[in-house]
């Protein structure tokens, strides 16, 4: 987006994550997320190796606020959109019709249907906090300093500095689509296979809707309209004598 002044994004250093999951609770409280759901995750990748040569990686994870978000493309009611001013991908809860099409559309599986509202839900980078100049709840409370958030367009922001100093940088590529994720893993390579990143998926119902039903109805209405137009033209030519003789 050319006129996008800010470009908010996350930078995550898995080495600094201690899997305390304070972020999960902070997010739950801040955003009233029901107990059945969560907007963010910490993936415990499990103990790897044989005793005593072991490693274990904890990967904080949430919406990537993509440059080219497949969820926005999948949303039939434009409830999901990318904010022009700062690039945060949000859901207008009033506009959301709860169809759930955005869930499989997201290659990162960060979306869910909120069990209380019945609407699509996901990380919105705590826009209400960001509007007040606060960091998102997960970032603000991250004890290990693993989660960072800020304006990627600002070279002096915490995230830009972290990226500039990072030993390694990795974005999670989606399958078959260039999403342009704005979540960067630094210093500790993460494995997108293990994080089960997929291609965006469209359910059959939607394919039938888009490919068959809409063109079909348009054709039917169009044919009728054309027929009537011909009849009307004939009527105009013949005049209205038939009835009012």
């Amino acid at each position: 987006m050319a006129n996008q002044v800010k470009k908010y994004g996350f930078v995550i250093d898995p080495r600094r994550c201690i899997d305390c999951r304070a972020c999960l609770v902070a997010c739950r409280a801040e955003n009233n997320v029901p107990l059945d759901n969560t907007r963010i995750w910490v993936y415990d990748q499990g103990v790897v190796g044989e005793f005593p040569n072991l490693t274990q990686q904890f990967v904080p994870y949430n919406c990537m606020h993509c440059d080219n978000p497949p969820c926005v493309a999948a949303c039939p009611s434009q409830a999901t959109y990318k904010r022009k001013a700062d690039g945060i991908v949000v859901i207008d809860q009033d506009a959301c019709i709860g169809c759930g099409l955005c869930l499989p559309a997201c290659p990162y599986h960060v979306r869910f249907v909120n069990t209380q509202t019945g609407k699509a839900d996901k990380c919105d980078a705590c826009v209400q906090r960001v509007a007040q100049g606060e960091a998102p709840a997960c970032v603000a409370t991250c004890i290990g300093g693993s989660r960072l958030f800020g304006d990627l367009n600002d070279p002096l922001s915490e995230v830009s500095i972290a990226l500039a100093q990072a030993k390694t940088i990795k974005q999670l590529p989606a399958v078959g689509v260039d999403t342009g994720p704005n979540l960067y893993y630094i210093n500790d390579p993460v494995d997108e296979q293990q994080l089960a990143v997929t291609a965006p998926h469209m359910p059959a119902s939607e394919a039938i809707y888009q490919k068959l039903i809409i063109p079909g109805i348009l054709a039917a209405v169009g044919t009728m309209f054309l027929g009537q137009a011909v009849a009307f033209a004939k009527q105009l030519r013949k005049g209205e004598s038939e009835y009012d003789e």
Partner: peptide, 17 residues
């Protein structure tokens, strides 16, 4: 809901025709 939307549309389309 994913099936109801096309159905809703189909019914509207039928009437509009």
């Amino acid at each position: 809901v994913q099936w109801l939307r096309p159905l809703h549309f189909l019914a509207v389309g039928g009437i509009v025709t």
